[in-house]
Design a protein around this nucleic acid. Structure first.
Length: 415
RNA sequence: GGAGGAGUCGCAUAGUGGCUAUUGCAACGGUCUUGAAAACCGUAAUCCCUUACGGGAUUCGUGAGUUCGAGUCUCACCUCCUCCGCCA
């Protein structure tokens, strides 16, 4: 959510942000509603002040109380009008996107994202024609999507044998790496009250089909632990001297993948349920750009530890999503598709989520302001397993284990 | 799932329909001090009107209601605690 004062004073900047983010909202209408709302409010407050004055006068004054009652009726008549304007305004405000930073490339969609750098050598000239991970997994009995289909339907999988052990090795690698940087490990709830699910700003009434909803209990399943970790400090005032607060969370994530019919239908690249290690940072506004760099640097450190070839993408305005002011993706090389596929994403959401969730901090002078929130993938387990399998496959169909994981999993090769 | 209790500023705490919601501690700022401690003084948030000085509205878990007036009364919901049941 944006500050209404900011919108009043920077209408052009907001219009421009909407245009660059492909969001179609009439800012002039927002300003008009805001103006209307304030006019009604002012009038009501004047009446209420008068009413209070009378009520504070004393007891048993029936003549004057009759007058107060009259004012009360008048106020009551105005209420629906205010509510109407206010709810219209609120709906529009919640749909407004965060303003992208000035150095974010302007672009229409993901085709205009910018490659910042490539690291590691894509194994295009591998010694043999690479097998895809499903073929490798079938031979070694590591992934079973057929039985998962029988039991749960499409876009599910059983991860078997050495793969779960590798998952725990990845978890340990991330925990060790992140704790060195002061991240606090956390396992968050994966079910959220609807108001919290909205707080992080990924869906509104129009597109909540993206999340799983438990109607009986009025709860959502998280699509990412970012939702429950960012919400953790809602309605709190943090102390500046405690900032930045860094968390590294592990949780299962649930996604309906509505609207992605036909995309990545095979295998476990795009599934309804997967485990993910996620980093979340609460910082002061001054710190957030550096913290964003830190998140990206840890993601790259983890990728280098696994020695996977990757590229870093600067996401353009049209592909940023509503809450982010800046976002970098990491894409790893997938040999079977001969292209890079997304494994990581890190966003600086500035005060956009903090304003919705009312997460504030008090500075040394005692002044209160909204924190900045940032998030970044440490590892999305399923996708990283895929990348390891394909990039570390051997001629005989076995899979080597990245050196950094060996001490955690206890074996060097899957065969 | 059943029965009972509670929610007031960061923490603790008073407040059974009336005017400006009490008190203590902590934290922060100031005075004093060579420095510190002590002492003393000050400090809630959100919103609206105003160029400003200033004024006003709202907020006692949340939302409705009763009333001229609600922390206080009524209803619903949320959260926590205790006991019973179930359970890894």
């Amino acid at each position: 959510m944006l500050d209404i004062n900011f919108i009043r004073e920077n209408a052009e900047a907001v219009k421009n942000a909407c245009k660059n983010k492909n969001v179609d909202i009439n800012i002039d209408e927002v300003l008009e509603l805001d103006k209307n709302k304030r006019a009604i409010m002012t009038e009501m407050e004047l009446l209420r002040a008068e009413q209070n004055k009378i009520s504070r006068g004393g007891k048993d004054n029936t003549a004057i109380f009759a007058q107060a009652k009259e004012i009360k009726e008048k106020i009551k008549e105005m209420e629906p009008e205010l509510e109407k304007v206010d709810s219209q305004l609120k709906i529009m405000l919640l749909q407004l996107p965060n303003i992208p930073f000035e150095d974010v490339p302007v672009g229409k969609d993901d085709s205009q994202n910018v490659v910042l750098r490539k690291v590691g050598r894509p194994a295009t000239q591998m010694f043999h024609t690479p097998k895809d991970y499903m073929e490798l997994g079938a031979a070694l009995d590591l992934i079973d999507v057929e039985r998962a289909g029988k039991v749960s339907g499409s876009r599910f999988g059983y991860i078997k044998r050495q793969l779960p052990v590798l998952e725990f090795a990845l978890v340990k690698l991330v925990m060790d790496t992140a704790q060195k940087e002061g991240f606090i490990p956390v396992i968050p709830p994966v079910m959220l009250k609807d108001q919290m699910a909205r707080g992080t700003g990924y869906f509104e009434a129009t597109d909540e089909k993206e999340a799983y909803y438990l109607a009986e209990d009025k709860m959502y399943l998280v699509g990412t632990s970012e939702q429950s970790i960012v919400s953790m400090h809602s309605d709190e005032v943090l102390n500046e001297k405690d900032l930045p607060i860094r968390y590294v969370g592990f949780s299962t994530c649930f996604r309906r993948e509505a609207g992605s019919y036909g995309k990545d239908t095979k295998g476990i690249l795009r599934v309804h349920q997967f485990d993910k290690l996620e980093m979340v940072i609460f910082s002061t506004p001054d710190q957030s750009k550096d913290e964003h760099k830190l998140l990206l640097s840890i993601e790259e450190k983890l990728m280098k530890a696994l020695d996977l070839p990757y590229q870093v993408i600067n996401i353009c305005t049209g592909d940023l999503g509503r809450p982010a002011a800046a976002k970098y993706d990491i894409e790893a090389w997938l040999p079977s598709e001969k292209r890079y596929r997304e494994t990581h994403s890190t966003s600086n959401c500035t005060d956009f989520q903090a304003r919705r969730l009312n997460i504030r901090y008090k500075d040394k002078a005692g002044k209160v302001g909204f924190v900045h929130t940032l998030n970044g993938t440490a590892f999305a387990i399923g996708r990283i397993l895929i990348m390891i399998m394909e990039n570390y496959q051997q001629k005989d169909g076995s899979i080597k284990v990245p050196k950094a994981l060996r001490k955690y999993c206890g074996f060097k090769v899957i065969k």
